[in-house]
Design a protein around this nucleic acid. Sequence first.
RNA 1: GGCGACGUAGCCAAGUGGUAAGGCAGAGGUCUGCAAAACCUUUAUGCGGCGGUUCAAAUCCGCCCGUCGCCUCCA
Length: 467
Amino acid sequence: MALVFFNTLTRKKEAFHPLSPSEVKLYTCGPTVYDFAHIGNFRTYLFEDILRRWLNTSNYNVTQVMNITDVDDKTIRRSTEKGISLNEYTHDYINFFFEDLLSLKIEPAEFYPRATEYIPDMVQIITHLLEKKIAYKGEDSSIYYDVSKFPDYGKLANIEVAELKSGARVSHDEYDKEEASDFALWKTYDREDGDVFWETPLGKGRPGWHIECSAMSMKHLGPHFDIHTGGVDNIFPHHQNEIAQSEAYTGEKFVNYWLHAEHLIVDGKKMSKSLGNFYTVRDIFKKGFSPLGLRYFYVSSHYRNKLNFTFQGLQAAESSVHRIKDFVLRLKSAHGNPYPDLPEALSKAYQEFKEGMDDDLNTPRAVASVHELMNLLNPVLEEKEISREQAQEVIQFFLYTDKTLGLNLDELLEESLIPEEIERLISEREKARKNKDYRKSDEIRKTLQEKRFVIEDTPSGPRVKRI
RNA sequence: GGCGACGUAGCCAAGUGGUAAGGCAGAGGUCUGCAAAACCUUUAUGCGGCGGUUCAAAUCCGCCCGUCGCCUCCA
């Protein structure tokens, strides 16, 4: 089976065909850097990482852009409150964001454009839209997009614009635009903006939110590209508006596949600071959970289903990661007789992993194939009925799956090399144990623990692990 | 009010017509000087409820119940 994605645009699973046979152009909506990103944000970024990794594994060359929104109402307000410049303020949160990406082993995108660095590109698009009479200047001198000029407006979210206009939450009085459903491309300068403004042919002001993504995506990926992703909350209005702006500007189709990640909820409820169920990834690590555990937790659910975060669930993920790591280390020291059924089991595992991933990134299915193989081989390993060469083949399978799952198994295998000094202590301890000198053996175990190695005695001798 | 998603074991989660994957937790066991870890066995006559279609339904249809999301700048 070939790779299929659920496309929000058609609300169907579609076979994936990039515009250019081996290249994929991918735009992923990134953070607004007004605060630390939370575990819900990272669910989406992790989904995008899995997407990127699977495309790579499927032999596509991926060019990924992730924008950084470093100017908006919140960043301006908070930097003003703190009494520092917008740049100073966002600088820190950009760094924190990259640290968090790194800790979760999210592979870097090719480009991380910042909104403030693309003002001229936005101005160019807006100017063109004004010339085409698709945009207009409102009573407050801000520039708005006239959605009635875009026939398919609302299609992405399956929303009728006619109903929008009478929507309960929209009050006409508050706006200087002609229709409540129109949206801002350029916001004219307001006192509250402080020293955040750009003098442009459009007037003194700052960009609206949606326009940055149109400008930055098209700049790096061209007017028409393959995949655009984000959280479900971005479907409307953000992504709809991007389509309207971009297609009106270029006259051609903007994006072929729109993929959206469902939200993470906490204890069955929307995460919010007032409920006390709001966590950043840093909060999670402070509680003693590992980045890989959190990664596995995200992967254990399909990206289009709501994911209910609980500490019990996270603990389960941690346990699963341990089990996988342990299995891989066991494989490393395997040396027995060849296991005749291995080739069949392995090819089945490869096939099921691939089928799961190809089916709209069904990670729970893919992960199950890994566990099934472990369930089959653990008893085999117990009986030493697998050869060193075969164990290597199984390790290759795990490394293959790990290119997508990202549990750092390659590093684990490298680290599993035990320094000579440690080996010496282990054999010394074994000697003491044989002589029933348990005081000495326990002492050595303690010493090893201080050097961050843990000993596990098994019928076939001691095993050592790094902690 | 409009649009939409979801409801499978104690918890998490696959499965969209052929008789319930997988994980965690629990229970029992193996191993062990102790410890820790690991490994093995085991856990849903049933998939929110009630009807219907069918030889066959978690899967299709209808109604109901429940949870949640979006509906103008929240991933």
